[in-house]
Structures are given as structure tokens and as C-alpha cells.
């Protein structure tokens, strides 16, 4: 039973950074912009949040700092991709490399000491329940925030007018511009929001998931989040399910290493990456399914005709 609880809660926790990052990227891509720089933004968020904690700021302030760092990093991408109309692939890659460099630079003074991790919440009564308490009601607040973001983004995209406008811009910026929507401004907001979400994902890694600073600590999670959006065929619920699937894989692999399975640890560590490839292949084979929710203008620069 304890093992089950450990695997279940571990899965939810491991999925949390992926949920933040992938949901943020979903909003960005729904507006027709492809930001490949999630890894860089996550690292900036992780570094800033970790620094804020070591500098004595409160946990909420540190997490906010992470989100702001991610948003600031995404602004670099936004200026290039939206104002300067550059190739979005190249701009995103530049951000990924830049973010990894800047975070490593900031992190050189962080030392290798762990910090006190974000605490779990203590709901009255609920957290004390047997079984259900440890399973559902003792997570740290970020876990619940990620789920709340899922609800909020699903509602925003599909139940509000603003969400409809955002999706329209992603389908056809020309039409939206002709109707009179400020395409570039809305895309900027989407990019900034995606950056803040990636920053939150990074902050979660450095102050809650593994509360210490390691250079390039995201280890490809930003790229996996990117793959999750494709895997989810641009639908929020599937992002949540996909993130749990990957979280589960990560935890099973860690449990496997802890149990001392007769398998090289490198093979187990490679599982999430292998799984990403397999899942992508399975989803992408079905072109129709991909095309259904695919933002038609994704990664195409848009210049309002004057």
C-alpha cells in the first residue's frame, strides 16, 4: 500500500512541471506561435526562484520570481518572432541555448546545498483522512495550482470569447486582422503567458521537486513538454493525461532504480525519452487526428498588411 501511495503521489508530482510548461505552450501554439525555447525559459525560472529562496525571500515571492523570469525570457523570443518576423524555429532554439547559458551563469554562486522544499498543504480534516489524505490532500500548493491552471485554461480556450479570438488568430491571423483584432498584441500576450508558465515549471523543479540547483537541471523536460502538446493534439485534457503518463514513467523508472533492478540505470533513465518518441510516432501517424486541432498558422510569421 505504501508503495502504491508513493508511486501515485510521485506521479502527480513529477507531472506537475510538465503540466505547467505544456499548458503554457498550448496557449502559445493555439495563437499560432511556436516557441521552442521552453527549456531555456524553464531554466531561467528555476534559477531565479532558487536564487530568491536563498536570498531570503518567501516561497510565494520566489515562485513569482520564477514566473517573471520565464516571462522576461519569452519576451526576447516574442520580439524576434513577432516584431522582427524571424524564423520561429531559430528564435526558439536561440532562446533555449541562451536560457541555459544565463541560468548556468546565474547559478555559479548557488552552491550545492539543498534548500528547504515547498511544504505540503494541510487541509483541515481532509489531509488527515486515511488513504485519501495522503493520496489527494497533502501535496504542495503548486500541484493544486497546476490543476487549477488546467481548469482555467480549458475554460478560457473553449468557453470565453477571448479564448475564441485567440484560437481564431491561430487559425487565420489574416482574417482576424481584417476583422480588427490586434493579432500581434494578442500573440505577445500568449507568448508572455507561455513564458510565465514555463517559469513556474522551472520554479517548481528547483524549489519543490528537487530543491537544489544543478546546471541544466531540466534535463529535457522542456522538450518533453513540447512533445506533450503534439501528443495531446492541442487539447488541454490530453495534456493532463499525457503529463501523468510521463510522470508515471519517471517514477516507475526511479522506483526501478531504487529496487536495484538488474537493468543498467542508464537504460531506465532513457525510458522517458524513448517513450516520447514512441508516443509521438503513434500520434503522428494519424494525420487526420493531428490536423483536427492543429493551429493552421503555427510557426508562420504574420505581418499585418497595411
Amino acid at each position: 500500500m505504501d508503495l502504491f501511495i508513493a508511486i501515485f503521489t510521485g506521479t502527480i508530482i513529477a507531472a506537475t512541471p510538465l503540466i505547467f510548461a505544456a499548458l503554457g505552450e498550448l496557449v502559445v501554439e493555439k495563437s499560432g506561435v511556436l516557441n521552442l525555447g521552453i527549456e531555456g525559459m524553464m531554466l531561467m525560472g528555476a534559477a531565479l526562484a532558487f536564487w530568491a529562496v536563498t536570498a531570503g525571500y518567501s516561497m510565494p515571492a520566489a515562485i513569482l520570481a520564477g514566473a517573471l523570469a520565464g516571462a522576461a525570457a519569452s519576451l526576447l523570443f516574442g520580439v524576434l518572432a513577432l516584431t522582427f518576423l524571424t524564423n520561429q524555429y531559430a528564435a526558439g532554439l536561440a532562446l533555449a541555448i541562451f536560457g541555459s547559458g544565463v541560468s548556468a551563469f546565474l547559478g555559479r554562486g548557488f552552491g550545492s546545498e539543498p534548500i528547504e522544499a515547498l511544504h505540503g498543504v494541510d487541509f483541515p480534516v481532509l489531509s488527515g483522512l486515511p488513504l485519501i489524505g495522503p493520496l489527494l490532500f497533502r501535496f504542495d500548493p503548486m500541484v493544486y495550482l497546476a490543476l487549477a491552471m488546467f481548469v482555467a485554461i480549458s475554460w478560457f480556450l473553449y468557453r470565453t470569447k477571448a479564448g475564441l479570438v485567440l484560437r481564431t488568430i491561430g487559425e487565420s491571423p489574416q482574417t482576424s486582422h481584417a476583422i480588427g483584432y490586434p493579432v500581434i498584441r494578442i500573440r505577445y500576450m500568449a507568448v508572455l503567458f507561455g513564458g510565465a508558465m514555463a517559469g513556474l515549471a522551472g520554479a517548481y523543479l528547483s524549489v519543490a521537486y528537487t530543491p537544489l540547483w544543478v546546471e541544466n537541471m531540466t534535463a529535457g523536460k522542456g522538450w518533453i513538454a513540447l512533445a506533450l502538446v503534439v501528443f495531446a493534439t492541442w487539447r488541454p485534457l490530453r495534456i493532463l493525461l499525457g503529463a501523468w503518463l510521463f510522470g508515471g514513467m519517471t517514477i516507475l523508472q526511479l522506483q526501478g532504480q531504487a529496487l536495484g533492478l538488474e537493468v543498467p540505470s542508464e537504460l531506465l533513465s532513457a525510458l522517458p525519452y524513448l517513450a516520447t518518441i514512441i508516443v509521438l510516432v503513434l500520434i503522428s501517424r494519424n494525420r487526420q487526428m493531428l490536423a483536427l486541432h492543429f493551429p493552421a498558422s503555427l510557426a508562420k510569421p504574420f505581418r499585418p498588411a497595411s
Binding site: 524576434l80 531559430a90 532562446l95 541562451f98 547559458g101 551563469f105
Partner: peptide, 9 residues
């Protein structure tokens, strides 16, 4: 890496 990124930007 920072300079690489800036250069590409």
C-alpha cells in the same frame, strides 16, 4: 552559451 544565444538573437 550566453554569447552564442545573443549572437543568434
Amino acid at each position: 552559451r550566453i554569447f552564442q544565444g545573443i549572437l543568434l538573437f
